[in-house]
């Protein structure tokens, strides 16, 4: 991980060194271009400069990650007050901070909770919201009741969680679901407007002939959905899964207020509790931060393409 990061920063730094020469060359070529007006040559140089500027810009993204990694490996005694104390390489690459941070934050347990909550939420969202999207989408043109239901659910997008937070805390406590299960139920309801809109929109791409044929063959609406439509919605399942998973995984507020009475933590919550207890030991803290960031970073590296297209799909539609 850190080696990779070093490599990237190194490359970027080398890019920065060549940058100055490129800059001069660019200026010369630009002067030459004004005389000749040669389009393609100018285009290439401009692209090169853009290339270098963008590579430099990446440093703003990579620097905080680099810093986190470096500090996580250091000992408190190495943290002097100048910049090299914080950003220089550690004397030894030891994993002690990580094992200690894992112990203190009960890392595996919090990770398990985060995976459980995110996994079940995503599964429920895909099952329930696709069904809702189908039922509404197929009937909303013909029947007013379904159209009203559509606008009713989608208008839920205007309700931020902070608005519902206090009544929900009371409600979940009253019916005894102020726990992980309650958080999952709330997510399933909270993401419904967005996901139903996505599924209903996607349904237009699925021709009705399939269903009609199934209907003629005697299949019920319920069977038709699970056997035909659900699989035809596959691309939208991916988008919904990614959007829901990312919002759930990083969410702090819902588990913070709903699971306050339990001993259970999610990964972000563990950081919050850790901060109030051990905030002054930066090396331990950063090891813990890095541990909290790693699962999603790994997930991103593996499924980068799907995540990017999922995010764009979700936003544009």
């Amino acid at each position: 991980m850190s080696e990779n990061m070093e490599k990237v920063t190194k490359e970027a730094v080398e890019g920065a060194v060549t940058n100055e020469n490129e800059g001069e060359a660019f200026a010369k070529k630009r002067r030459a271009k004004h005389k000749k007006q040669s389009g393609p040559v100018q285009g290439k140089t401009v692209n090169r400069v853009i290339n270098i500027l963008l590579a430099l810009g990446c440093l703003t993204v990579l620097f905080p990650l680099y810093m986190t990694t470096i500090i996580a490996f250091k000992q408190p005694s190495e943290m002097t007050n100048d910049i090299s104390g914080a950003l220089g390489f550690p004397a030894e690459w030891k994993f002690e901070n990580f094992t200690e941070a894992m112990r203190v934050t009960d890392f595996w347990h919090s990770l398990g909770n985060s995976i459980l909550i995110t996994g079940v939420t995503v599964a429920l969202c895909i099952l329930i919201h696709s069904l809702a999207g189908y039922v509404i989408g197929r009937k909303m043109i013909k029947l007013k009741a379904f159209k009203m239901s559509y606008y009713y659910i989608v208008s839920g997008m205007f309700v931020p969680f902070a608005v519902l937070m206090m009544p929900l805390v009371k409600q979940t406590a009253q019916i005894g679901i102020a726990n992980r299960f309650g958080v999952i139920v709330l997510y399933t309801v909270f993401f419904m407007p967005m996901n139903v809109m996505l599924y209903t929109g996607y349904l237009k791409n699925i021709p009705t002939q399939l269903e009609e044929a199934a209907h003629v063959d005697g299949a019920t609406a319920w069977q038709t959905f699970w056997k035909i439509i659900f699989f035809n919605m596959k691309p939208m399942h991916a988008t919904v899964a990614i959007l829901t998973a990312m919002s759930t995984w990083n969410d702090v507020m819902t588990p913070l207020v709903i699971m306050a009475g339990t001993d259970e933590n999610t990964l972000p919550l563990a950081q919050l509790n850790f901060q109030s207890q051990f905030g002054t030991n930066y090396n331990l803290a950063f090891a813990s931060y890095l541990l909290a960031l790693l699962p999603i970073l790994i997930f991103y590296i593996v499924c980068q393409k799907q995540i990017l297209s999922g995010v764009v799909n979700g936003a544009v539609k």
Partner: peptide, 12 residues
Amino acid sequence: IYFVPNILGGLV
């Protein structure tokens, strides 16, 4: 690389 900040949790 430019998309990485978006996937990380705001708290950490």
